[in-house]
Simulated scan of single mutants.
Amino acid sequence: MSSTSPTPPGSVERLPRADGRIFLVTGGNAGIGYFVAEQLSTTGATVVLGSRNPAKADVARASIRARVPGAQVRTVQLDLADLSSLEAAVQALDVDRLDAVVHNAGVALDDPPRRETGDGHELMFGTNHLGHFALTHCLMPLLSAAPAARIVTTGSFAAKTERLDLDDLESREDYRPKRTYGRSKLAQMYFGLELDRRLRAVGSTVTSVVVHPGGALDSLTPSRPPVHVRTTGALILKAPAGLLLQGKHAGAWPAVRAVLDPAVRGGELWGPRVFGLRGRPRREPVWSHLTDATAAARLWDATCDMTGVDVGLGVDLG
């Protein structure tokens, strides 16, 4: 992706231009997704906020336009928990190509009980992993129509200590919210890496990159009222937490770099520079458990069975 700016592509202060490009950010109405969208909008690209809640998406779009003069921001209703709705959502994009998608949206439940999507899947696994897998299937024609599109999957540092239970992917036998969340994000990361292997095998021009935001806290995130308002209590916590962690605006940096930097390659993992928790984005070694190609292939096959689609092949298995 070329730039007329002398600033290096990895700069977080001044991003390279991306005029004429089209980027979709799932969950772009809040949290890290909002800041990914805000930062990408400074490049001259058209940024589409994918959100389950149209009212919240409209508020986020207005916030970005107020902060970024001339920002080209659109919204599309997107409910990753409803697999049958995704094809219509992609049609609603009304574009002939897509230069990048950032798979950012996610559900995190802190307390029991276990919940399910309308399709009968555990809510976090169904939304975070299955929804993005099925969405990628729907988006592949648009991504393939771009010269060198990128699929950027946002994992989580919480996945680093988790391991998949391939016999209980949806936590039917043993449900613990924090562990189930971490495993849903781990599944996403496996997917992003396996997807790139499969895209390379068929000679696709589309590449897949995996990122994670490190430790991104609301208390360290700058206010974007009414999207995000940092409280007085949060300000008190800011100093000690800031030694090791960062705000969600900084948590967005790895994803933004993965979209824009021509030096980023498919199959790479990007995260914050300092202990993987804070700082400017850098390429880091793929975590050892994510290199298990057998587990990745088994997860892929199971995901195809659960969603009824196979990404990259253009095949509906239902």
Rank of each mutant, 00 (worst) to 15 (best):
F157N: 13
F157W: 14
R163C: 07
L164M: 08
D168E: 08
S171E: 09
S171F: 11
R172Q: 14
R176T: 13
P177V: 06
R179L: 13
R179F: 09
T180L: 10
T180A: 15
T180G: 11
G182F: 10
R183N: 13
S184I: 03
Q188R: 07
M189I: 10
Y190L: 01
G192P: 09
L199G: 01
R200P: 01
R200K: 13
R200D: 11
A201L: 04
V202A: 07
V202R: 14
G203D: 00
G203L: 02
T205R: 08
S208K: 01
S208G: 02
S208F: 01
V209S: 11
V210P: 03
V210S: 07
H212P: 00
H212I: 00
H212N: 01
G214H: 04
G215L: 15
A216C: 07
L217W: 09
S223M: 04
P225H: 12
V229H: 10
A234N: 12
L235P: 00
L237F: 12
K238W: 15
A239D: 12
L243P: 11
L245Y: 06
L245N: 04
H249K: 12
G251C: 04
W253C: 06
A255P: 00
A255M: 03
V256M: 02
R257L: 11
A258T: 02
D261Q: 02
P262Y: 02
P262R: 04
V264F: 05
R265F: 01
R265G: 08
E268Q: 10
L269N: 03
L269S: 02
P272H: 03
G276Q: 10
R278F: 13
R278A: 15
E284W: 13
P285I: 05
S288L: 12
S288G: 07
